[in-house]
């Protein structure tokens, strides 16, 4: 059936909660109201207030208490209302959730999913638009996931819930309702009218650590994830370049095999992400590609990213690395 990413995420919660009564869901406005983006709609009514509930406005409290619950033996799936709000919980994520298994010699573990809408495109300014993925990929002990369509959102979230370790689940909020390709001045096709909106009703998982080639090509490899998967496709189409586009889906663990095989085939690599450039995840991808594919490369590895500035409000579309910038960089790489 056709679902939006929001419905796919709600459906994943629903199936996980029905299957395992250890799964508990909480966060700000998550219970009665069903979340500001509606990703937990109806869960409190169906599973009761002790399995899906509202919390005080304290990200530290949400994640810290979830770690305790996970150590107790439950499977918390918590929502941070916007990824931009996660920082008060950062110590709990980095020093606690990520290291509990290791530091206790396996005595305690932390099976926990922390969901958060990320990325721009909604005129959210600097506090509702950030893409903080590299703050998590840099931390040993965490897995970091970002889907780009409803089918993967459901399968990856269910895989994250099954995972025995803490998983950061970033939801590109601009994709919630349709495959936004960066053309902010055009209407988007809703997921309901898009093939990628086809989501199986049953329980299924999409394995963590596996990338997907969303478009095969021969001239250049584009490594991307989240909203930029769709922007990259638009950029490649507009540049008229036969690009192979890889949706990484999981950043850690990273599917290096798929990446290496593709770049060795095409000889060129462009990395596209919304987050700021310096020390962004693209830097890691770039280092990986140059060290493992150096003798296959015909052009320097190129990054198309957000600028190294705070995310602006009114100037959003000059900040956002849209299809025009992707196309321009693709052409540049092809000219080398």
């Amino acid at each position: 059936m056709r679902m939006t990413i929001i419905e796919a995420i709600q459906n994943a919660h629903d199936l996980a909660m029905a299957r395992d009564d250890k799964v508990v869901v909480f966060g700000e406005d998550v219970g009665f109201f069903g979340g500001v983006f509606r990703c937990t709609a109806g869960l409190q009514e169906k599973y009761g207030p002790s399995r899906c509930f509202d919390t005080p406005i304290s990200e530290l409290g949400i994640v810290g208490s979830a770690i305790g619950m996970a150590a107790y033996g439950l499977k918390p799936v918590v929502e941070i209302q916007f990824a931009d709000y996660v920082y008060p919980a950062y110590d709990q994520i980095v020093s606690e959730a990520a290291r509990l298994r290791h530091r206790s010699g396996g005595d305690f573990t932390c099976p926990l999913v922390i969901r958060m809408p990320s990325g721009g495109g909604i005129y959210g300014g600097q506090t509702h638009s950030q893409s903080p993925e590299s703050l998590f990929t840099h931390v040993a002990g965490l897995k970091t996931v970002m889907p780009s369509n409803p089918r993967d959102a459901k399968g990856l979230l269910l895989a994250a819930i099954e995972d025995p370790d803490p998983v950061i689940f970033l939801e590109p909020k601009r994709l919630y309702n349709g495959p936004f390709d960066g053309h902010h001045d055009r209407p988007i096709v809703p997921w309901k009218k898009h093939d990628l909106g086809d989501v199986a009703k049953n329980y299924y998982t999409t394995p963590l650590g596996k990338a997907e080639i969303v478009r095969a090509g021969s001239k250049v490899t584009i490594l991307t994830y989240g909203t930029m998967v769709h922007v990259a496709q638009a950029g490649a189409n507009e540049a008229g370049i036969d690009a192979e586009i890889i949706d990484l889906r999981t950043l850690i663990p990273l599917d290096t095999e798929t990446i290496e095989a593709s770049v060795k085939k095409t000889g060129r690599c462009v990395i596209v992400h919304e987050a700021t450039k310096t020390c962004g995840f693209g830097a890691e991808l770039s280092a990986l590609v140059q060290s493992s594919c150096f003798f296959y490369l015909e052009a320097p590895v190129t990054r198309v990213t957000g600028w190294d500035t705070p995310y602006p409000h009114a100037q959003e579309w000059d900040y956002f690395p849209g299809p025009a910038r992707v196309a321009q960089n693709l052409k540049k790489v092809m000219e080398v």
Binding site: V24, S50, R51, L60, G61, G64, S65, A66, I67, G68, M69, A71, Y72, G73, L74, D91, Q92, S95, E96, R99, L100, R103, S104, G105, D107, F108
Partner: peptide, 30 residues
């Protein structure tokens, strides 16, 4: 760290365990 003896793994950065204890207790109640 000694789970079987009711002793949670100590972190070393202060205070983080306090809210985890509350969460553990909430888990028991849930």
């Amino acid at each position: 760290s000694a789970k079987d003896y009711g002793y949670f793994s100590i972190s070393g950065n202060l205070g983080t365990q306090y809210i985890q204890a509350v969460g553990w207790a909430m888990g028991s109640a849930i």
